[in-house]
Design a protein around this nucleic acid. Sequence first.
RNA 1: UCCUCGAUAGCUCAAUGGCAGAGCAUCCGGCUGUUAACCGGAGGGUUGCAGGUUCGAGUCCUGCUCGAGGAGCCA
Length: 435
Amino acid sequence: MDKEIWDTTVSKVSRHVEQEVRLKGWLYNKRSSGKILFLILRDGTGIIQCVASKAVLGDELFARMDGLNQESSLIIQGHVRKDDRAPGGYEVQVTSCEIVAEALPEYPITLKEHGPDFLLDHRHLWIRTPTQRSILAIRSEVMRACRDYLDSQGFLEVSAPILTPSACEGTSTLFETPYFGEKAYLSQSGQLYNEAAIMALGKVYCFGPAFRAEKSKTRRHLTEFWMVEPEAAFMTFEELLVLEENLITYIIDRVLDKRSEELKTVGRDPSDLEGIAPPFPRMTYSQAVELLKKENVEIEWGDDFGAPHETMLASLHRKPLFVTHYPAKAKAFYMEPDPERPETVLAADLLAPEGYGEIIGGSQRISDYALLKQRIEEHRLPVDEYNWYLDLRKYGAVPHSGFGLGIERMVAWICHLDHLREAVPFPRTITRLRP
RNA sequence: UCCUCGAUAGCUCAAUGGCAGAGCAUCCGGCUGUUAACCGGAGGGUUGCAGGUUCGAGUCCUGCUCGAGGAGCCA
């Protein structure tokens, strides 16, 4: 009787020890020894060593496999064995092999080192490597965790528009695009639309790309990045911070649970992330300034923090750090003043450890019509474009809060990346629009 | 926009102002347990571009282009 053949994936191969399996994938590397051949196959779920011998396969098929180029696509059938000599502990003794498509020689991404510019020019191929695949798998897990957690807390996902009529904030540079005779801009945030949506749905979040035309040339900036932005009616500032702590903790726990293999592949020791749990340390802006002055860092009350300030403050803790109660002048127009000290606002930035900077910016929002209108005017924003936003304060205003979590910065921190551009499949920076 | 650094083989990098090199990749050959396999051989160059100094420039000088990461900026 014929043996049963299991169609499976590399990630599930350990369930099929001493069984016959069929794997579909690409040739990642190959080591040849004349009459025995080691084929390293990757299939999107992992990589595994396949052993081909001339005695089993015959001269003709063996020679064809021996001549395969890196990245050729294959369907390999074989017998799974546990073997300590194999990387990963399991290998497949090949019984037959279908060559789906032979790759051309001189695949650009070799197993040796490459420079960042070369790799980014070949990003469409670079993502096939184990490290990049793992980062993207972790990114997917982070995004799914955001949705799962917020859904479990009763939030509804609302899609905010990408094409918007004006600069929401008025301060940062936006990408402009023609729009049937007028100008439209790519969204830098869905927050204002979220504030409308919570008055209909209570608790919402939007999840999408955000765009900034700033000429930032640092490892912490992209021109196109992804944010999840929760917003909730009746949520106070204190409740906001608790939500942020819980979301971050949930994401970390999820990645530790589901993607520990990928964490190891990207070189992050999972134990670095264990113990990230509420409560997170907190510090007011004023306390932070005092602390920086004590360390002889040049800063005056009222100045916004730069990257070195953030890095120094965040390096005091293993957990992310809340910095709260910023001066109103240094922050966005819609933030609610602190009733006890109205020159400051009920805003909090969450700074990731290890120099990854601000992963969350959030605040309670102004709910008073007159004050909000005054702030819009003070910031010299076009009031007409904000009439709909002001309407929200006319018809049943409530205290409400929200925040934005930067997905790439979160992924970069979790994966211990040295640049945000590896945290997104196809990064967009000031100097890179392709591939 | 500013500061700093960089550009040499497909890739990663060497080369006191004096013959343009290595490893990997590619091609050919060898090897039955390899681990970024190894061993032998071959091909592969407008040294980013344009000028200048010099007997002689990859190397020194000037300008430009492109890139890097830091500042500024940044929900």
